[in-house]
Design a protein around this nucleic acid. Sequence first.
DNA 1: GCTTGACCTTCCCACGGTGGGAAGCATTAG
DNA 2: CTAATGCTTCCCACCGTGGGAAGGTCAAGC
Lengths: 141, 141
Amino acid sequence: MNGSSMNIGQAARVSGLSPKMIRYYEELGLVPKARRFVSGHRLYTSVDVQTLQVIKQARDLGFPIERIKKLLRLWQNRQRPSRRVKEVVDAHVRELEERIVRMHAMKRQLEALAQDCLGDDSPDCPILAGLQQYGRHGPEV
Amino acid sequence: MNGSSMNIGQAARVSGLSPKMIRYYEELGLVPKARRFVSGHRLYTSVDVQTLQVIKQARDLGFPIERIKKLLRLWQNRQRPSRRVKEVVDAHVRELEERIVRMHAMKRQLEALAQDCLGDDSPDCPILAGLQQYGRHGPEV
DNA sequence: GCTTGACCTTCCCACGGTGGGAAGCATTAG
DNA sequence: CTAATGCTTCCCACCGTGGGAAGGTCAAGC
């Protein structure tokens, strides 16, 4: 094994992924099927590892696998219009925003509920009352 | 079937859950095993439905099932100290906050990357460059 | 009555990602 | 040579939800 040819464990350490994830990404077609040593062990070159690092970065930025697939295709295509890249990223940013907004709304509601709860030994609790009262979904029963 | 005794479909409509979810929650022990009609169909009273509505509210506020279990136990226990309720809610609020912070950091980084991308027909793209450059995890290769 | 359609039952499978672990080779260090 | 890692493939788990098959039941219309 020379300096730029490594097995899955090494590739994992260098990329910050786990061997399990790398095999899984290969199975999904996110990375091409790895070449093998004669022993059958997967062989990674520095080029492969660079791809894995990009995947790791994208995962850390919250991209779902399918979008990373698109990003990788663009990354590897020297004729890509940067417009396409930006579209993918913008879509992801919008989804992040939506999720943030939704979670922030939850947080706000919960804080409003918790505000009036004394949090002592008494059983009276506006939080529980609120859970019963909020947002009816069907006809009253 | 009288006014306060209904089947799972009705209970679903009134609570805003789906029949599948109701069965799943029963399987998890979130709600007790439903009584049955002679036919074998599940039977729900207005009390059962109230529980389902509380669950729906809690799910909408982002509580994971296990925490809802705790909340329900407190809700049904008239001797609960409201402190316990507040603890559960506060823990959830903290987790929401953490997730919001993490997602906001992702969004910020992505916006920084996208800012300098022209988004035109040219293949030059600082986003892709950034994905390669950011955060190395192992020794350089 | 009998048929039809909507609903119920249980059962298994899928998703997205990740981890755990078993059984069987390969490699490496001592 | 042996012992410990580490690799391979395989299956199972998580969380929460949806889809759908195969079969039983209800309520309406004729």
